[in-house]
Design a protein around this nucleic acid. Structure first.
Lengths: 355, 355
DNA sequence: TTGTAGGCGTTATCAA
DNA sequence: TTGATAACGCCTACAA
């Protein structure tokens, strides 16, 4: 058996003894076609199993109805939540998605961008790789007026439309919270500071220290890849410091958890000896013991917002030049890993699992 | 500024004073075109920024080069790993992906299938929703010879090509392991048994009991949605049983963890009073304490295998009727949550984190 | 080895 | 309100 012959608007037209033009119009619910014929055509289309040929349509109309998504990795809790949000919006609006992973490598990201361009996506949603410094590979989109929205990992040097959270403020709050718990020797574990999210969190950390007259110590800044494994290694380094730091603010939960487990294994009590704050509110945060204080970073909402904004723009509802940043709500979720004092401040919020 | 005019093969042809046909052939590296002209054309194409118009190509060739993916949820560790694997293979082979989430609802799944069909995907990768019982909504693909590969959640009643693991055997081993640890009152927490993965795991559980002359007790079978929350609720039920069961085999890690945390909170010691085994080897499994014994279910590999197989088939390399099941390797990963005896059996394997 | 020409299914323009 | 017709860019017999 072979694929059945496809029904085209000509088949419908012939059957009804009208022109293909009328069928085409009717199928788009063009009010210029009389209601009666529109109905007849719709019925016949249904009956004969007609389906639009998007290739012909796109060829003619020069619109692809496709959004490209470039993402570092799909399989992390945060990133898969983002995609989930994007998918929902795109699906609802009838847009297709082309998703590709950069795997945190600029080279791959450049290749991805090229593919996207060749696929003629109508718009692009991008979160940059760790080591992307310049974004010249996206110039071709800017030049051709293909809108790009960056989310989470955004470029520093260029004006662009971004969907983010206030990383700096959250970093500040996380640090301030630790200070309020009586911590003074606060280590910060993060990734390369060239990536905005990490730089911003670090800036917040530094500012909070400054505001509390705690000098920033270079040795308290540990840079790694923020993996669970990296966390375990950071733990080793931290445990050799003398005096032992009394708090660690880690830029993601995976790494924080790896660090906590290694310390616990070494017999260090959390939060009594060292308090912990992570970032992202991954599921592991409310499983590790003690439960990890962290910043709720709503990936699904980020995805939704980015996609919705892009689509609105594509449909001409909004001008991209008006908004250059959409900042979503995020908040510190305080759990046991950082609580060294009895409940006190206004920040306190004992929810053990926000999801 | 507006979008630049697109370069077509005609532009290239004019410039070189040759025919568009030759250009078309050269661009596909058709050996019938002389090497010299092929080179010239390639250079000019590069120089002028030519890019293939896939819509024209697809319209002509009637191939979409697109694979549809229907998935219950994107944002779970297992599922996002699957997608990651699919994306990698598809990207390498030049296929586009259309991904849509059924959200565990048949209605949505039916709608998704319809969309996929209208998008004329060349093939389909499907993991069924919880409550999908019949798969008539995919008949239209079978009828039109659009190949479908099911992965993870596969249909029972119909012949289809599947990518799976041996759920029954793993269920058996998990249970057998618990029995070897001295457990006799083993509760099984799972989801609706109409879904193959859960039914198979349950069958393995039951068989292991039988082989050890332990009668199966209906009340030891708890059905829920396998969420973390569901696990906490299951814990309540279990803790009211008298005598207290001495082991719980849960059909996924999320739920197992929820159950463990609730029990720990109630003061029950794990594994001394109750041993635990989960399923999937999610990241939480090696974070919860004690670390959770579980079955390593390699999502990324599943995605890779499913996509590769579909693409091979689409390219005519393999006939789909030959293979009707690809069974990937999976294994019990024994951790502390189930070990009530000193290390002994051959199954023992103390890796705390396979990732 | 290259060229000619028709058609893939839709939409848009113009005319009726 | 409808119809005829010419693109959209590419591919592929068939001819040269």
């Amino acid at each position: 058996m072979t694929k059945g012959k496809e029904i085209t608007i000509y088949d419908l037209a012939d059957k009804l003894r009208i022109s293909s033009a009328t069928v085409s119009r009717a199928l788009k619910d063009d009010p210029v076609v009389s209601k009666k014929t529109r109905l007849k055509i719709a019925e016949l289309a249904e009956e004969m199993g007609y389906r639009t040929n998007h290739f012909a349509r796109n060829l003619r109309s020069k619109k692809t109805n496709t959004i490209g998504v470039i993402i570092p990795r799909i399989n992390s809790h945060f990133m898969s939540s983002v995609i989930s949000g994007i998918e929902k919006v795109a699906n609802q609006s009838g847009y297709n998605l082309i998703i590709s992973q950069s795997g945190e490598s600029v080279e791959k990201e450049i290749a991805n961008a090229k593919t996207m361009f060749n696929s003629r996506v109508d718009g692009l949603l991008v979160s940059l790789a760790y080591d992307t410094t310049n974004i010249n590979h996206f110039d071709v989109f800017f030049k051709n007026n293909v809108p790009i929205i960056f989310y989470d990992r955004i470029p520093q040097q260029r004006e662009s439309t971004n969907v983010i959270i206030d990383n700096q403020r959250r970093g500040y709050e996380a640090t301030q919270h630790l200070i309020e718990q009586g911590c003074k020797r606060i280590v910060h574990v993060t990734a390369l500071l060239r990536r905005n999210v990490y730089l911003d969190r670090f800036m917040g950390y530094k500012q909070a220290l400054a505001d509390n007259d705690i000098p920033f110590k270079e040795e308290y800044l540990i840079i790694n890849d923020l993996s669970k494994q990296g966390g375990a290694e950071a733990a080793k380094v931290i445990m050799q410091m003398n005096p032992l730091p009394d708090a660690v603010f880690v830029a993601n939960d995976d790494c924080a958890v790896g660090c906590m487990l290694a310390m616990k294994e070494a017999g260090i009590r959390i939060p009594e000896q060292i308090a912990f704050v992570g970032f992202n509110n991954d599921p592991v945060a409310s499983v590790v013991e003690p439960h990890l204080t962290t910043v709720n970073y709503p990936g699904y909402d980020i995805g939704e917002a980015a996609a919705q904004n892009l689509i609105d723009h594509l449909k001409g509802k909004t001008s991209m030049t008006v908004t250059d940043a959409i900042v979503l709500r995020s908040e510190l979720v305080i759990r046991a890993s950082s609580q060294r004092k009895a409940a006190s401040g206004s920040l306190l919020n004992k929810s053990s699992n926000k999801k």
